[in-house]
Computed example of a mutant assay.
Amino acid sequence: MADLILHHYVTSPFSEKVRLILGVKKLPWKSVFIPAIMPKPDVLELTGGYRKTPFLQIGADMYCDSALIADVLEHLQPESTLYPEPEKGMSRILAQWADTTLFWAAMAWNLQPRGAAEVFATAPPEAARAFGEDRGKMTTGNMTRLRPGDATSAYKSYLRRLSDMLDDKPYLLGEVPCIADFSAYHPLWYTRRIEAVKGILDLTPAVLDWMDRIAAIGHGTPDRFSADDAIAAAQAATPASLLSDSTFQDDHGIPLGSAVSLRAESFGLEETAGTLIAASRMHYTLERTTDRVGTVHVHFPRIGYVLKLREPS
């Protein structure tokens, strides 16, 4: 099998989620560091428009969104399963809540003025402005943005509820970590990195102990890889999807072979254009060809993404 290549940056919360999953699965991987904000020319060359972090490359296949990446890693290494029975459905639902509702409450708390001041303390003044402008371009006009006071109330409540889940077990749903643990951990991990705001975690000691258990998993042993090496790997490979749910599920009246675009529902609105070659119950796949990378397949989870037929040019 081709190398697992994770395109990420150090302080990306969703990248931390995937790095830990790679660690618990004990899978070797290549590390390509990418910019935190645009421009990201090498990223867009591989994905065709998707610019959120991280994405996983395996040869000429690009897997977008941490939810789909988790499914791919589960397929590659079923041991230390992310979706244990009989809580498989519960783990997925809790993970989706954590990746959305919990994440946005945590980030509103984390990047309140005193948190943001610390995060950008060693950066030039224009860095904070550029980051804010970049993230602003990724959101819809009607996306709910929690104010610091509201975020504080919500975040405290969510931390207490997580603590309640840990009263009689080491992980959120049992004796071993599952996808819910990794999804709930990463926004709290970001909080813990910021001295000015991390004190909120002290209100829930059980959560801190759980975080220590998750952190101890580690990231495995990644090898550094360059963006040029990753592009060369894509160019040398033939797409070969590891996604097994291949039965066509048509919920849009868009047949396979159509020229389409895909984008996230509410955050990361840049479209990826291509030919629709898979639309299963779990994922979409677009085929794209460029001079620099050749033919690649770009994969997205079905939940959280908008599929549209492209207008003839």
Score class of each variant (00 low, 15 high):
L309M: 14
L276W: 02
D134V: 04
K156T: 03
C64H: 08
S31A: 11
S91M: 11
T295A: 09
D202F: 00
F182E: 05
R288I: 07
P255E: 14
A234P: 06
I179K: 02
S280G: 13
I37E: 06
P187R: 02
R213Q: 02
R224C: 10
T221K: 09
P255M: 12
A95W: 00
I217R: 07
L172F: 03
M165W: 00
L166N: 02
K52M: 14
L242M: 07
S280P: 03
T204I: 03
S244M: 15
H75Y: 13
F131D: 10
L20W: 08
L203H: 00
G136A: 10
R161W: 00
E118A: 04
D228A: 14
M211F: 05
A234R: 06
T221E: 15
A128P: 05
L269C: 11
R310G: 15
V296P: 06
I277T: 09
V298M: 05
Q96Y: 01
R281Y: 00
S163C: 04
D3K: 10
V197D: 05
T247W: 06
T139G: 12
A127M: 14
L201E: 09
A108M: 06
A264K: 08
H297R: 12
V43T: 15
D65N: 07
P187C: 10
P239Y: 08
A117S: 05
R145H: 09
S153Y: 00
G304K: 06
L76F: 09
I69Q: 06
V296W: 02
D291H: 12
H283W: 07
E87P: 00
L44P: 07
D291L: 10
I214L: 14
A2K: 14
L243H: 03
L173N: 09
E126Y: 00
D167P: 00
K88M: 13
T53P: 05
L203Q: 13
G89P: 03
K30R: 15
L243I: 10
I277E: 08
K156E: 08
P148E: 08
V176A: 14
Y190L: 12
F300H: 08
A230R: 02
R19P: 05
P148A: 01
W109I: 09
K88S: 14
P54A: 09
L94S: 09
I254D: 01
R281K: 14
S80I: 00
Q77S: 13
A128V: 13
A108Y: 00
V298A: 06
S12C: 11
S183P: 05
Y83A: 04
F120E: 02
V119F: 10
T289Q: 04
G89W: 07
L309N: 06
D71F: 02
H8D: 10
G136K: 13
W189I: 08
N142I: 14
I58G: 03
I254L: 04
P54V: 11
L82I: 07
S163G: 15
I21S: 03
T100D: 15
G257P: 08
G304Q: 12
T139K: 15
S246G: 07
